[in-house]
Design a binder for these strands. Structure first.
Lengths: 209, 209
DNA sequence: CGCGTAATTATGCAAGTGTATAATTTCGGC
DNA sequence: GCCGAAATTATACACTTGCATAATTACGCG
């Protein structure tokens, strides 16, 4: 008779991370309907009971995965900030370019994003995550815009800056989407040039040296 | 004993249309996983066996529904042009305002769009449909932009116009998304004002009277 | 070394899934 | 009016799903 499957204990954080990663992989490959507890567990190298042990319900796991995905995308942009130059205009230019270039632009990320987007419309928990991560990204952009405008000697008032951030964020979202969905139609280099030109027009200042 | 449910025969086209409409309604409300054969049949006012009678498989029905949805969206966009004023700048302003206002901004439409978007990443046929409809919308916008720039006396060259259309399209997509996903965070009136201001900056001309 | 506890696996279950097939009803043509 | 074919309903089935619970195992701590 077959022996019971051997296993090794790993910390809660390790297992949660593995389950989240597996869930994202399943969704990316086959959509939400492919992310069954059994498929996720198999991919994470555990049995399905463990999911229940770390997440009260499957919905909780999906929500955590969504959070992880969005936070990761936002942080990918934020992390690039450290590598950017100190000059406010150059910083903004670099931030904008990153947002519409790989690895932020990525078909897999877009498939995942679309999957979660469709849950946002009806699941309050997803909605909350989306709202929070969206705000985090926009706030970063808003701060960069404020700094860049400061260099002109004619800074905009807070309300105007906020509206510029909303428009700029929408522009980046749209370009990111298109570049991810149809990469051959909108190559990264062109997306980058369009994004920077548009930001220059929106803010009324030069970004590139 | 209960009598068997009475029914009346309707043509094949009528029933297929009803089933497609019901499938879209189910997906919009509860996502693809809510579009079960029983739920669709109930909504269409028939019993589940009939689905199998008109569609070889459930996937066939979903594919037909997607086709119907995308075709409808494209046609709706084209139809709205007819109701706009003749003046090029006013036309562009109206087009932009429509794109970020109800009924175009609509949680149901966004849920359906997200559902199909996620298929685009995997299914080449869906990809082709997305590409075609995206191009159709952007071409409309590009023509409007070209006309509006013409009124300034300094029309832009084709390459520049194309880039402006890509940027404008991305901006509208992003605002549409945000207004649909989080209506209370970005009310229609504000989305409209931001979109028009941004277009004025992008094109360097006045749109509102 | 042994022991207890938490981690992990194994099993079971009720509900829901898509699909196949049989049983009935409608309705146009004769 | 009635008959046959097509439309529609009803039922059954095998499978999957998420979740609950019991059984077992790993591993830190004395």
């Amino acid at each position: 008779m077959n022996a019971r499957r051997p296993f090794r204990r790993k910390g809660e954080e390790t297992r949660r991370a593995a389950l989240i990663e597996a869930a994202l992989a399943c969704i990316a490959e086959g959509g939400p309907q492919a992310a069954t507890v059994r498929a996720i567990a198999l991919r994470a190298g555990v049995t399905q009971g463990l999911i229940r042990h770390y997440f009260a319900t499957k919905e909780d796991l999906i929500a955590a995965a969504h959070d992880h995905l969005m936070t990761g995308l936002t942080e990918a942009s934020a992390a690039s900030l450290g590598a950017l130059p100190a000059d406010p205009r150059a910083r903004l230019e670099g931030f904008v370019a990153n947002a519409v270039s790989p690895p932020v632009v990525d078909p897999r990320a877009m498939a995942l994003w679309a999957a979660s987007m469709q849950l946002v419309a009806r699941d309050p928990a997803m909605r909350e995550v989306h709202e929070r991560t969206y705000r985090a990204f926009r706030d970063q952009l808003e701060a960069l815009i404020a700094d860049a405008l400061q260099t002109t000697g004619r800074p905009a008032d807070p309300a105007t800056t906020r509206r510029l951030a909303i428009a700029g964020n929408a522009l980046l979202d749209g370009l990111w989407l298109e570049a991810s969905a149809l990469p051959e139609q909108l190559p990264p280099e062109e997306a980058r040039a369009i994004a920077i030109d548009a930001f220059e027009s929106l803010l009324g200042l030069e970004l590139k040296e």
